[in-house]
Design a protein around this nucleic acid. Structure first.
Lengths: 181, 181
DNA sequence: GATCACATGTAAGAAGTTACATGATTCT
DNA sequence: AGAATCATGTAACTTCTTACATGTGATC
């Protein structure tokens, strides 16, 4: 099954938590600092129609005539698509280019059968590997960078090092949760 | 002057360091982990033509006939545009949605008159403000998030906390550099 | 019945992606 | 000459942005 955009999965996950209207979804984005999604109608409504076209969500007939509030909820296929997406392990490419997408996946993982532990294990490996790559670059070809460029590079490196520490704590928290029920 | 895309500024900055061809620029992106830019020709060449259309870069006539290597360099207007861009202070919105763009600006700031210190000062204020916002959310409306969602939120928070520490060190490094010449 | 908040939609354009096409040079 | 590599270009598609348009219900 072809995949949707980050926004598409964000909407699908939110609708899985609770059926909502496009307007509700916009308010989620405009009132919480959860992601970096735009609350613009020009993004949300087309994304919803995309999901409808894929038959991942549906609005229970109702609300004919005029433009009333349309509440969407996932179909069986939509729930399946969400599950499959949540089960995907983190790739190196996502670590480098799409960290937000990985965190979105994690955020919805409570709804998942296995819980976050397998995902976090894979993520830990990939993020450590990426830090090693960045460190190798800094020690090798990147050694002679001018001050500002080196500072900018170190910002990225420090960000990923923080994620290495975070993921270890996250794994511990998930383990503790599983043991204590 | 209207602004260009992140990729456009990346190209402009690189060409300011050293005149290059599109192919050279692609290799920069494919062989260094500096940014998250794609090395795809479908992004690079149209972006170069955009910069040419704006008269920010030019390829010294030469290389007529057939498809030979075309080496671009910034025009006077291009250098001016780069300078103005580098002089822009970091905004909160960029901190939240476009950290990479800020780091790109910093990376080219060695070429700048003032050096990175004013930029870093503004950046420090904005990133601290954003951390405070995230902490307020976690303590207030976000207090009841399920485990996975909270972990994902904390990943973001820890990333920004790491940037608060990084920016303090970066300011110290820039100060030390200025004093010691 | 005017006005405001709720709610959805759309058009135009920007910029990227993937995949393909093609010319020029160098190496064997 | 053939193959690999250097080098540029383009078409189709996707998705987002900004800005505008429009309908519906509640309140004054």
């Amino acid at each position: 099954m072809a995949h949707d955009s980050t926004l598409g999965y964000a909407l699908l996950g939110l609708l899985h938590q609770l059926p909502r209207s496009g307007y509700d979804l916009r308010k989620v984005f405009s009132t919480t600092p959860i992601g970096r999604f735009s609350d613009s109608p020009g993004a949300i409504y087309p994304a919803l129609r995309r999901l409808v076209r894929r038959r991942w969500i549906a609005a229970p007939a109702a609300a004919r005539g005029g433009r009333r509030r349309r509440v969407y909820e996932p179909t069986a296929a939509g729930r399946r698509a969400l599950s499959e997406w949540l089960a995907r392990p983190a790739t190196r490419d996502e670590v480098v280019r799409d960290w937000d997408l990985l965190m979105l996946r994690l955020a919805f993982m409570t709804e998942n059968a296995q819980g976050p532990e397998p995902f976090l294990a894979g993520l830990a490996a990939e993020v450590r590997g990426h830090v090693a790559e960045l460190e190798a670059f800094l020690a090798g070809p990147g050694a002679g960078m001018p001050l500002s460029a080196r500072l900018a590079f170190e910002s990225g490196l420090e960000g990923y090092r923080a994620q290495v520490r975070w993921v270890a704590r996250a794994q511990a928290a998930a383990r503790a949760r599983r043991r204590s029920g």
